[in-house]
Design a protein around this nucleic acid. Structure first.
Lengths: 363, 363
DNA sequence: CTGAAAGCGCTTACAG
DNA sequence: CTGAAAGCGCTTACAG
């Protein structure tokens, strides 16, 4: 018995190998694996048998080259320490896998320089790119669209009119938080801002300010928090160190709200919500942990992800599909970090939902 | 001026287009972009100019097909709600991108069925596969190795002798925790186990039990926690509902330790560490949050990731490179959830490090 | 240093 | 239903 010497990097089994063993043409093998209708049962069986014997799997790279579709979606993300993003990533991965797509993950480096990433995205012929980080420049989106790669913005919008995007209702969220806090009898408001250039921060802040203004309340004190723990901690020290400190703080993300809460408790010995109310945004898993029980505007991850997947598939299936911005409504989940208003709350399992008073302010 | 009608799905610019414009051969374009040494400056300039004009980028898919290397590393992960994994993913992504590799992300579905995933991994011709989930069957690893794809286990080992893996020192960690708790005068020990079939759980538990035994202490009460919040909560209720409850609980992950801590405080009104000490494993970001300040055995993410990257590159560069298991040492980071022993602690910034008494027990 | 040509492993008209 | 052949966009010996 002669032993076949394996070629250097272990030659993989190809459709031609299967064709040989099954005594059919290479095209036939291809048709069987593509579930092409015009294939006889006999041939199908022969091919599948041979394929099983050899351990054959179609080469997706070769297929991509000829079909001009990689079935790979590029996903650019940063801030994985904000639990919102891992939740999105997991949900997105499941949803795309269910449609036969894979995720090629790009993370922004510390410098935030997106250009090396851009080159990779373009090289790998991703079918679409989901941009899920606030800090990545819009430049990359333009370049991709120019190269014919649909771009979907996730949890951010763009100044480009008609760009495809999926966001929570940031403006309405900010506004509802204002209304809720005012209804709870708060007087001195503060806002811990996220990254200044991000659309999420801009809209949440605008909604909050508009909500306060519409109710005749003063505008909030504003301190930058950069969407990170440290930033929010510094911001909280600034706010609570003032002679007249705020009695309600809205932080633009749960991560920052928790940092604020912790700092208020440990460094200023404040009791929440007796001395201070704190509201976050996102309603991530940690917001439910007993030590926090954070009041937060919920961005529904599943709904946002399925909207994004729909948008991607639409644009992939019909090239003419209009790029449209989608806004997913959310709800203000009320827990224990806020003084509660006398009405407007609906009880659920272990939280309340704040009912937006209808039609009071235009969004 | 005639407007060129774009071909249907927007034909991408190829090296042939660039070659035409630059008046050189297609091979020349390829050589310039591959940084091939034998290219005249004149030609390089002509090619790069033409490429810039047309917005050309090499097609990585086509390159992969001919080079038999995709420069894509498959990463299979689950449990993204355990903060350890997002930390790993971010760090790994950076490290691989720095070496010109991209991550194709696979997440296990709820059923834990790894087989559809396996087909995808094999189809996409990943250069290597990093298996970073405890629950994915070893079967997938074998299939990949069989197909010539190097597999690196991350934060888990395999029964296959000599499989490539990177883990923290789970056994030593468990043992140190035992020694530390005994030195702190604890008497009744409990262990909240992770997924029963996982190597991390097995080794952490074995180390803990061995450490207790070596010091003549009774074995811990053992309850399953499944590595998730709910499981750990149920486990804690079981443990603390007993007539003689434990005075020290080691939970096999920080996520479970925090669930335990929260449950002990809120449902049993216990004060930690006065009534009960709690120790976790991983030392993820949330362990540092003021409400927890969790004592935890640190798995150094950066060191583990760079070991994994080294292992991957080794196996990719020389096919004969031996697959070897790597164990990265960790340290027991002592914070506020444990009663402290009179000696053996070294103070750092805002925590202490427990000094493993040298040579007392064989690992 | 440069070009013509073969070939990576598929899909898909085109004939039969 | 089935096969022969062209071609996706590159890399890389092989000649010159």
């Amino acid at each position: 018995m002669t032993v076949k010497r394996p070629d250097s990097p272990k030659r993989r089994v190809t459709s031609t190998d299967v064709a040989e063993l099954a005594n059919v043409s290479q095209s036939a093998v291809s048709r069987v694996f593509a579930h092409h209708p015009s294939v006889s049962d006999k041939m199908r069986r022969a091919v599948l048998d041979a394929a099983r014997t050899l351990g054959y799997r179609p080469n997706a790279i070769a297929r991509s080259l000829i079909t001009q579709r990689s079935r790979i979606i590029g996903v650019a993300m940063a801030y994985l320490d904000n639990q919102f993003y891992p939740e999105v990533l997991q949900s997105l991965s499941r949803a795309l896998q269910a449609h036969g797509y894979q995720i090629l993950l790009f993370t922004a480096d510390e410098t935030g320089a997106a250009d090396p990433m851009l080159e990779q995205v373009l090289s790998y012929q991703v079918d679409a790119l989901l941009l899920a980080s606030v800090s990545l420049s819009s430049h990359i989106a333009e370049e991709c669209e120019l190269a014919g790669i649909p771009v979907i913005l996730f949890n951010r919008t763009s100044s480009t009119p008609g760009a495809a995007s999926v966001t929570g209702d940031n403006f309405a969220g900010g506004r509802q938080i204002a209304e809720f806090l005012v209804a709870g009898g708060h007087q001195r408001f503060a806002y811990i801002a996220g990254a200044a250039e991000s659309s999420t921060n801009r809209d949440r802040e605008a909604g909050f300010c508009a909500g306060l203004a519409a109710l005749g309340m003063p505008q909030p004190m504003r301190v930058p928090g950069q969407y990170d723990w440290q930033g929010a901690q510094v911001a909280t020290r600034l706010l609570l160190g003032r002679p007249t400190r705020p009695d309600a703080i809205f932080a633009a993300s749960d991560l920052m709200a928790i940092a604020c809460l912790e700092t208020a408790r440990t460094e200023f010995s404040l009791s929440v919500p007796a001395d201070l109310s704190v509201v976050g945004f996102d309603d991530v898993g940690v917001a439910r942990w007993p030590s926090y029980r954070l009041t937060s505007f919920a961005q529904p991850v599943e709904a946002m992800v399925s909207a994004a997947v729909t948008l991607i598939l639409e644009r992939l299936e019909s090239l003419a599909a209009p790029a449209r911005p989608i806004v997913i409504p959310g709800r203000l989940i009320v827990r224990q970090t806020t003084r509660h208003p006398p009405h407007g709350l609906t009880a659920e399992a272990d939280y309340w939902v704040w009912q937006d008073p209808p039609g009071k302010i235009d969004g």
